[in-house]
Amino acid sequence: MSTKTKNPHLPGKVTVWRMSEEERLAYIAKHPIQPEEKPKPLDMIEQTPWSKK
């Protein structure tokens, strides 16, 4: 009797997608990358409590 269970932390099955250059360009044209309005600042970078002004 096997008591082996699926471990949810192990990687699952990987699906590899292959595209031709024309398919890739058509996908990029259909789904363009749009930058965010303004990147959110990181609090740790902006806070400089020990720096001399």
Rank of each mutant, 00 (worst) to 15 (best):
T3R: 12
T3L: 04
T3W: 05
K4C: 04
T5C: 02
K6V: 11
N7E: 03
N7C: 11
N7A: 02
P8Q: 00
P8T: 02
P8F: 02
H9I: 03
H9C: 07
H9V: 01
H9K: 08
G12K: 12
G12I: 07
K13F: 08
K13I: 12
T15L: 06
T15N: 02
T15C: 08
V16K: 08
W17A: 09
R18K: 11
R18H: 09
R18S: 11
M19T: 06
M19I: 04
M19Y: 13
M19K: 14
M19W: 08
M19L: 15
S20E: 05
S20N: 10
E22G: 12
E22I: 09
E22D: 15
E23Q: 15
E23K: 10
E23S: 06
E23A: 06
R24S: 05
L25V: 04
A26H: 01
Y27N: 10
Y27R: 11
I28L: 08
I28N: 15
I28C: 14
I28K: 14
A29W: 12
A29E: 07
K30N: 13
H31A: 05
H31Y: 15
P32Q: 09
P32D: 14
Q34Y: 14
Q34P: 03
Q34M: 04
Q34E: 13
P35Y: 04
P35S: 12
P35W: 00
E37V: 13
K38N: 03
K38D: 13
K40I: 11
P41I: 00
P41F: 00
L42Y: 11
L42I: 02
D43Y: 02
D43E: 02
D43H: 01
I45V: 08
Q47M: 06
T48I: 00
T48K: 13
P49R: 05
P49K: 06
P49D: 03
P49C: 10
W50P: 02
S51I: 02
K52D: 12
K52S: 09
K52T: 10
K53A: 08
K53L: 07
K53I: 01
